[in-house]
Each structure stands twice: as structure tokens, then as C-alpha cells.
């Protein structure tokens, strides 16, 4: 029971951290896609709400993806791919459901999917670079630890 409580606490913390990364990513994506497709568009104050709402919507798959066992690298990559597909599907449905399919709409949809992929790759590349430095430091500490024990 206590273990499950700790697990959910950590899981929620992780989802919250990812939520803020996603909101930042959406802001960047809206800026880039907007500059490409509608550079003259004027937006109201409600535009500030959209990244927050879309961030919350796209956090749902991560919130529901519960890992009972520690995933292997392959499983983690597979999970990321599923996440990208789900997030893209949710975003496109929320934003454009019921709208008439035009060439411009398809181009915007492609832009959104590419943005989701770019944000996911970017987040993983940045954390990989940071983790590589941490791993190197841990390995050095490990060697020093083993040398100390072995005299």
C-alpha cells in the first residue's frame, strides 16, 4: 500500500515535470508553425490559454501509462513512439475535429505532427547529453569506490 502511494507520488511528479516541458514545447511549436502558415494572424489573450490546455490534454497518455515493471530500453523507445502517436492524435482531434479538410489544414496537421516528433526528440536528446555527463561522473566515482575497497 505504502509502495503504491510512493509510486503514484513519483509518477505524478514526473507527469507534472513533463507537462511543463510540453507547454514550453507547444509555445515554441505555435510560434514556428504560426510564422510559417499565418505570420500576420492577430491573437487575443485567450491564446495564452491554449498551450496550457493542450499541454494538459497531451499529458493524459503519460499519466495513464503506468509501468508496473521497469521497462527495458526497447520497451521505453516503443513507449515514446506510442506516446507521440497518441499525443498527435489527441491534438489533431481536439484542434480540428469537424473542420473541412483542405490542403492548408493537412499541411498544418503535418506541421503539428512534425512539431510533436521534434519536441519529443529534442527533450530526449537534451536529457541524453545531460545524462551522459552524469554517467561519466558516476563511472569515475564507481572506479574510485572500487579502488578504495580493493585497497
Amino acid at each position: 500500500m505504502m509502495y503504491m502511494k510512493d509510486y503514484w507520488k513519483d509518477h505524478l511528479k514526473e507527469c507534472l515535470r513533463n507537462y511543463f516541458i510540453i507547454v514550453t514545447g507547444i509555445n515554441l511549436a505555435v510560434f514556428v508553425i504560426g510564422m510559417i502558415f499565418r505570420p500576420d494572424q492577430k491573437l487575443g489573450y485567450d491564446a495564452f490559454l491554449y498551450p496550457i490546455i493542450y499541454g494538459a490534454i497531451t499529458s493524459i497518455p503519460g499519466l495513464l501509462m503506468v509501468e508496473k515493471k521497469e521497462p527495458t530500453i526497447k520497451q521505453a523507445i516503443f513507449r515514446e513512439i506510442i506516446g507521440v502517436i497518441l499525443i498527435s492524435a489527441i491534438l489533431l482531434t481536439t484542434m480540428f475535429a469537424g473542420m473541412k479538410i483542405t490542403g492548408e489544414l493537412i499541411a498544418i496537421c503535418c506541421g503539428i505532427v512534425v512539431s510533436v516528433i521534434c519536441i519529443t526528440v529534442l527533450v530526449n536528446v537534451i536529457s541524453w547529453i545531460l545524462d551522459s555527463k552524469k554517467a561519466e561522473s558516476l563511472t569515475n566515482d564507481l572506479i574510485a569506490f572500487q579502488n578504495k575497497i580493493n585497497g
Binding site: 521505453a76 545524462d131 554517467a135 563511472t139
Partner: peptide, 27 residues
């Protein structure tokens, strides 16, 4: 010199050769 490294694994640090990054902040 054993230590818990995940929910289901305890490792002997004297048998670890190196540490490298994995996905999602894991190693």
C-alpha cells in the same frame, strides 16, 4: 557494497564495470 537500483533489482557495486545513460533519466 550492494545497493538498490530499481524497484526489483539490488546490484553488487563491486561487479559493475561502467554506467551509461538510458532513456527517461534512467541509467
Amino acid at each position: 557494497h550492494f545497493i538498490r537500483i530499481s524497484k526489483s533489482v539490488v546490484v553488487n557495486l563491486m561487479k559493475v564495470d561502467s554506467i551509461r545513460p538510458a532513456l527517461n533519466g534512467r541509467f
